[in-house]
Design a protein around this nucleic acid. Structure first.
Length: 113
RNA sequence: AAGGUUGGCCAAACGGUCGCGUUAAUGCUGUGAUGGCAUUACCGAGGAAAGUCCGAGCUUCAAGAGAACUGGGUGCCGGUUAACUGCCGGUGAAGGUAACUUUAAGGAAAGUGCAACAGAAAAUUACCGCCCGCAUUAAGCGAGCAAGGUUGAAAAGGUGGUGUAAGAGACCACCGACCCUUUGGUAACAAAGGGUGCCAUGUAAACCCCACCUGAAGCAAGGUUAAAAAAGGCAAUACGCUUGUUCUCUCGUGCCUUUUAAAAGCACCGCUUGACUGUUAUGGAGACAUAACAGCUAGAUAGAUGACCGUUUAAAACAGAACUCGGCUUACAGACCAACCCACCAA
RNA sequence: GCUGGUGUGGCUCAACGGUAGAGCAAUUGAUUUGUAAUCAAUAGGUUGUAGGUUCGAUUCCUAUCACCAGCU
């Protein structure tokens, strides 16, 4: 889990980022991101109703969070991020999810390497 | 051994590293706010948390008492419970070789409706027929009958005899139905005995009748703090007075809408000690009740349980609390325990 | 979380408990030099699923599945 100050919470913020931000695609996950001036930058996760019942959705969300947490220190803290899960993600391994998240951040040029 | 029936119990385990939530302690910080950060410790999803199908608590509808109508629910008997359409025990009916399972099971003589097609007729019956009289080549006319045939899901008790012109509960025996009495049982009901020729089909999960119960909305209910200001409309012959309708009495006095202000607010309370959980004892056939002792066991709010490694044979089914309880229903990998049944073998 | 509603041919909808029907679409034929329009015919339904009541359920009752809408 991420700390409280790094979580994106309000529905307004989600909508704002969806409208104004840029999007990067991968096969099972999308990433929306937008520049912020507020310093503790925030990350949100969105798993829709289509993916499954509540147990499946929770599991997907947890795995995404874990994947982000492991590379948290390498992210450039200038943007707000939303990870959007797509279909068939519930059948993936954790390692595949990790790789996709890494690729997304690389495409968005938000990694510190 | 194999197969089956019923009931109960568990819901992968252990160890390590990183990470998350509540609470407590300590330290730092200091907000409008009992907040924020760090460290340590404890605890951290289910048998169905699900469906939202019933029943309650709790809250609001200003407060309370009552009447009529309408709507809704339940429906064998007894018990149990805070309550229930739940549960337990029994009765009847249906199914199964059996253990056992299922069961919305009041009233059709209070009334109304419906019963397509077929059939003479779907409820005060007569097509083909049977028999007697008249007539007779035949057709026919009058009177009697409902046994046989045809239709249909269903046709006016069934089988066998006596009887008769032909027949018919017209009469007899057995079976069924109804009524009465006795006995047993709290009762539903059962058994026995006697009587009645049998007076009328089905459907109430059609309207309905009878008996009993029933106000509505729901924690997104509702409340606390900062924190109010302005404009408009209606108004004591008014508005409210239960959110199915109408009404009576006691009663209350401003009400409604819009805009602006951190603003579809944030924070806090509601929120978890409760018809609670476990063990033992007693009562009971059981549901359950009573008593003693012990325990505190999630409380999130974009919403906490994940990732990796090792061992067991092994990456386990259905599935994630959202105010809380009691049930019901549905989904489900695998493992274990107990009782019983059937047939076979052996004695 | 709570509260309502709907499932019928490919699509939009009907249907007193008694043979499942209409319009559009599809196919075939007629008409036309040809197409459209028009006319005639044809096929296509486990009435979402599973039980029950009934002689008989699209319809009545119960459970379940899917979809849609509303409430902060």
């Amino acid at each position: 889990m991420l700390k409280k100050e790094n979580r994106l919470k309000k529905n307004r913020h989600f909508n704002y980022i969806y409208k104004k931000g840029e999007v990067v695609f991968e096969k099972h996950v999308n990433l929306c991101f937008l520049k912020t001036k507020f310093q503790p930058f925030k990350i949100g996760f969105s798993v829709s109703n289509k993916i499954g019942k509540s147990t499946v959705r929770n599991k997907v969300k947890r795995r995404l969070r874990e994947a982000v947490r492991l590379i948290f220190n390498e992210i450039i803290p200038s943007h707000n991020l939303i990870f959007v899960a797509k279909k068939d993600i519930e059948n993936l391994d954790f390692k595949h999810i990790q790789r996709e998240v890494y690729n997304l951040l690389k495409k968005a040029k938000l990694l510190n390497v």
